[in-house]
Amino acid sequence: MPAAIRIDGLTKHYTVGFWKPRPYLALDGLTLEVEQGEVFGFLGPNGAGKTTTLKLLMQLIFPTAGRAEILGRPVGDVDVRRRIGYLPEHPYFYDYLTAEELLQYFAGLFGHAPAERRARASRLLDEVGIGAERRLQLRKFSKGMLQRVGIAQALVNDPDVVFFDEPMSGLDPIGRRDIRQLILRLRDRGCTVFFSSHVLSDAEALCSRVAILSGGRLAAEGQLSELLAFSVRGWELVVSDLRDEALEHARRVGVIAGVTPLGQGRFALDLPRDSSPERVLADLTAHGAQLVSLNPLRETLEEYFVRQVAEHPATRGLDQ
């Protein structure tokens, strides 16, 4: 079985500046392999080269060097596109079409008969949660609704590999949850999902593996939990109705590094990594405290990137 995606030394130079043209390295020798059936997170801050990579895979731009294959075929092969789906970043479609018509149009491009086009359009719009609005022209759609339509159109051919560029952007929390569930359903069907994000929590909930891109280069790759930078360093426990004796009692059960009052009777407790938060929580609730939230403390993508950039001085403009 060929790899779902194989990227080998993919490089893209842009020329920027009209009067004083200078090269700009958008992607620098990216090598990556994604197996079929994986949900792969492609992470990095804005401008890291994620969108460039996806556009190279879609042949919307052409590489300066390197090559890429999808399902064992070079990306330039049109037949590859029968088996893939793509959600562009900030998707935008034709103002004058309705959501229904757009999906029927795209379904037609895969050679489906009109009846089948209608059936697919209707099923996919249901799946992404577009209701009666499907008969409205797309220019009346909000950003979040366009995002949903964009996901629907990426799935119009029941693809084996889907590429989502920032699928969560523009969505409210409910929308994010819907898309997360959709990605998991796709995984369960055996579909390979390759999505980019600059938000770590999206990847955390979904991905079997991630790659982290920074400054056009691959910074790290592997399972998120294996990546040292992102392993849990402690916990933040927020409780209400905390009485002093409960706190005293809890201190004996586990280590509490610090207590910060948050107002409205709430307190944030700082627990070190090895302090077994389950036992502290059980003890506190036994003494009448109420759980508000329990969050792992670890480096965020943002912190990680700030550190990366500090460690690797700018490599973007070749003339610098």
């Binding site: 562009p88 034709y94 491009l109």
Partner: peptide, 11 residues
């Protein structure tokens, strides 16, 4: 950018 999704189809 409507061309992005169009050209990712077999067009």
């Amino acid at each position: 950018r409507s061309i992005y999704s169009l050209l990712s189809k077999p067009v």
